[in-house]
Structures are given as C-alpha cells and as structure tokens.
C-alpha cells in the first residue's frame, strides 16, 4: 500500500513539474520565441561553463578528500615501477584531460549562437589532422615502451633463490602451502582431495609432500627482502590472488598452474609505522567473481624478518603429521623410513 502511495506521489510530482515546464514554454512563445531562444542559449552556455568550473573545483576537492586513503608505497620491489608509471600516465592523461575539457567548454562559451555570428565553414585540414594523429601515436608509443619494460620485468622468471609458496583458492577461502625442509612442493591430485584430512589432495606417495605445511586459513608468512614465487591454483572455479599492497595480481584457474613472483620490501611491522595504522595488515583479496562468498574470500600476508619467520616455521607441524596419526597411517612400506624421520623432526623441533 505505502508503495502505491509513493508511486502515486512521484507521478503527481512529475505531472506538476511537467505542467509548469509546459506552461512556461507556452508563455515564452507568447513573449516572442526568438528572444526567448536567444536568452535560453545564453543561460545554457553559462550553465555549461559553470558546470565545468564547479567540476574542476569538485575534482580538486575529491582529490583532497581521498588522497589519504590511497595505498602506501609499494610493498614489493616490482611494484615500485608500477607506482612511478602510474604517476607518469596520470600526468600525461591529466594534461590531456584538462586541456580537452577546457577547450570544449571554452568553445561552448565563446561560440554560443548570437544573431550577428555566422559560423566558419571549415571542413577539413589535412595538416591538423595529421598532427593529431601522430602526436597521440607518439605519446602512446612512449607509454607502451615504459609499460612493456615494467611488464617484462614483472613477468620475468623468478630468481633461483626465490622461496616457493603455493596458494590455492576454493569457495570461499585461500589455502597456503609451504614446501617444508626439502624445499619442494609435492604432487597433488584433485581426485585425492578430502575436506576432512587432505584439503589439497596431496599425493602421499610423493615423499616431498610429507613435510609440507598447510595453512587452511589463508595466512601466508613471507620473509622481507627475499624473493618469493607463488604457485597459484584453484580447486573449483576461477579465483584471483589480488595483492594490492604489492601491486600484484594473478588468476587462480582450475586445471592450470599460474605463478607470480615478487620481493617484499617492508615487514608488516614496518608497514604499520609507514601507514600509522596499528591494525595494518597485508590482505589477499579474491579479485575474480567466484560465487556468493566472493566478497569474503580474504587471506592475509605477514611479512617478517628471517629470524621471526624461522621461529614461526619451527612451530609448525607438517600437514601429514597433523592428519595421519604417526606410524600407523604411514604409506607404502618402502617410503616409511622417510616420513618417520620427518615427523620426528617436526615434533622434536616443537
């Protein structure tokens, strides 16, 4: 009922506005259409220019309000190139933006119709047209040059000493896996996945898996100033590992392994100081629509010094040990020696 009343009210308001508008137009016809047209023209030109002026003021205001909310300096070395490139592109496009908009609204004001004016018949000018084909082309070429240098830098092979961490998306959280002591991620097979005790489908016949450490909560620990290569995968639909602070992003696609690498520059603690935000945390956002929980698919990254990292790592238990109550569940006889020592090691370190 209230819905109807609201709709009726809206229609009523429109009718009233329409009638007033119409009446004023008829009145203007009586006053002499030509005169009114000329006046409307002046008013509109003025309003358009006012719009432009207010718009520029608004842009400035908006900038003032929001600039503090922008991301802090790039947390990765690779992102430094992004930051400077963003600035260059902003300056170039910003100049073009203000120049063209100013010209547009200047012409609007300057060439508004008057009785005396006649328009200038000007159909083309090859020189001008050539000029404004080549200048943008050159500008684009230089932006491409800067861009591709960064692009190849970012997408290059990770250095050999890079740490390797796997991150796998599923509806709706991230799973992080570390290779353990052998520094090697074991094989996984989606057919072996079991939400109770093998969330990544690790193949227990591959001994590289036995020391792998898994964080099912999507918390990733990294060492500052040490390159890290992420091995990215997905269990179900496409997700995307978005790391805004590191200026990094890569899709997680089922059936395909993607990678990206970068070098963290600041520990989480340092970043808290840089941003002045005691709650600061590096977040992993899912940037590819993946279903109803997409918006909640949050992971975190904790960047630490090597010593802190080592201490944290020492406190971790391998996924295998967590889910396979020691020797009884050990796999095929031939391999049994290795896992035992492994899990012993882990317990010993605790």
């Amino acid at each position: 009922m209230s819905g109807f009343i609201i709709i009726a009210l809206i229609v009523l308001v429109f009718i009233i506005i329409y009638q007033i508008a119409k009446a004023s137009e008829y009145a203007s016809v009586l006053r002499g259409e030509e005169k009114v047209k000329a006046q409307t023209n002046r008013t509109m030109a003025g309003l358009l220019v006012a719009f432009f002026v207010l718009g520029v003021y608004g842009i400035w205001k908006c900038h003032e309000l929001l600039i503090d909310k922008m991301l802090p300096v790039s947390a990765s070395e690779q992102g430094v190139g992004y930051d400077s490139m963003l600035k260059v592109t902003l300056i170039i496009t910003g100049l073009v933006f203000f120049a063209t908009q100013a010209i547009l609204f200047w012409f609007v004001w300057r060439y508004q119709a008057t009785e005396k004016r006649t328009s200038f018949y000007y159909a083309h000018n090859n020189k001008l047209e050539l000029l404004w084909t080549t200048v943008p082309a050159i500008a684009m070429a230089s932006l491409v040059a800067i861009g591709l240098r960064n692009w190849f830098n970012i997408t290059s092979q990770a250095p050999a000493n890079a740490a390797v961490v796997e991150i796998v998306g599923k509806q709706f959280n991230w799973i992080v896996r570390y290779p353990g002591h052998d520094n090697e991620l074991g094989k996984r097979d989606f057919r072996k996945i079991n939400d109770a005790n093998n969330i990544l489908g690790l193949d227990w016949n591959d001994t590289h898996n036995l020391d792998d450490i898994i964080s099912p909560s999507g918390e990733m620990h990294l060492v500052v100033n040490k390159p890290v290569k992420l091995i990215i995968g997905s269990r179900d639909v496409i997700h995307d590992v978005g790391l805004p602070h590191f200026r990094m992003k890569m899709d997680a696609v089922p059936g395909i392994t993607t990678t990206m690498w970068f070098t963290p520059r600041y520990t989480t603690e340092q970043m808290k100081q840089i941003t002045g935000n005691p709650n600061f945390v590096y977040e992993i956002s899912c940037d590819q629509m993946c279903g109803k929980g997409h918006y909640s698919m949050r992971g975190t990254i904790i960047v630490q010094t090597q010593a802190e990292y080592d201490a944290w790592m020492a406190s971790q238990q391998s996924y295998y040990a967590q889910n396979n109550a020691a020797p009884a569940a050990a796999p095929a006889a031939g391999d049994s020696a290795k896992p035992k020592t492994d899990s012993v090691k882990v317990t010993a370190m605790k």
Partner: peptide
C-alpha cells in the same frame, strides 16, 4: 575527439 572539438570551434552553437 579532436575533430569534434574543431567542429564546434567558430561555430554558431545553439544549445
């Protein structure tokens, strides 16, 4: 864009 701008340049614009 440049051609549109030049189109209204020295026109006799009716708003």
């Amino acid at each position: 864009v440049f051609n549109w701008l030049t189109t209204i340049w020295r026109g006799n614009i009716r708003f």
